[in-house]
Design a protein around this nucleic acid. Sequence first.
DNA 1: TAATCGTGGAT
DNA 2: TATCCAAGATT
Length: 356
Amino acid sequence: MVKPMPSPTSLPLRLLDWYDRNARLLPWRARPGEMADPYRVWLSEVMLQQTTVQAVAPYFLRFLERWPSVHALAQAPVEDVMHAWAGLGYYARARNLHKCAQVVSEWREGHFPDDEDALRKLPGIGDYTAAAIAAIAFGRRAVVMDGNVERVMARLFAVREPLPAAKPTLKGHAASLTPETRPGDYAQAVMDLGATICTPRNPACGLCPWMDACEGRKLGIEESLPAKVEKAEKPTRHGLAFWTVRKDGAVLLRRRPPSGLLGGMMEVPSTPWREGGAWELEPARAEAPLNAEWRLLPGLVRHTFTHFHLEMRLATARTGNNPLARGIWCPLDQLGDQALPTIMRKLVRHALAKAY
DNA sequence: TAATCGTGGAT
DNA sequence: TATCCAAGATT
């Protein structure tokens, strides 16, 4: 029995051929032959940073409808952008998105730079996004490295060195394959391949246009690649939030500092989040947004961030018409208009279920 | 360089 | 329930 020889067609061309037959229909993707809109490419790529296609799609469509151009987005109040971004996570992206829109709108007359180096200088655009925009929106040859490309290259070339140390090696391999023609389609093709065929678990090697060339598969180690260094265990932090109901029914919220965790988003006022045990009501009073008769509600709200678990207790109190408090009184029926991240929406739901 | 920074779906 | 992980950027 003769082993089938690899196809004589180059790897990039085989992948482009596969892409022409299998490209996914995504809301931000230009139709074949259509010119890509740099604004849409940029908006989608920023949203897609560390975020799934499924999560991004509705946000992308809402943003595009509300702010159809970079000028429109630049002129929007940043609070509106934060609110529209709520639930998508990594909120620094929303602030940088708005900053970037203002730079492009004001200083560049609405035109995004068409090369990688200039794109890289804009807020919220790093190595990956600069390369992706240059390739997809402007047809430039750029080596686009994301998690998919890293995984595909690690398997194709059987790179055993663990991430993140292996990144330069993997980029070298990616560069060796990146073609001059159709670089935007090629970049999206590798990412589609990683997302649908060369998946982290149970890769569908039988459907892969690069199967015969894959060194990882030849060695039977494809599913163990890319290797990664072990991650530290997540600690658990504890907080106690204060649900304050004014006589007219409004509740007290406040805006978080502009940078750091959940930067610029709204929150239910709370104690600091600390390790080393849950807050009791008595010491927590000192952290309350105002003096009141706090009562501890039953239950616990749990949430997990990138690097720690959070367990929140909830205390409630009622106040008169004009209490002295630092924050924003929000009528119950306007909670949906606030830039509340998911953890805060969980707290609100818990309060509405237990405090009335 | 190594931390920090969200969320939800899949397994 | 616990862990992984996704079209990464910033400091």
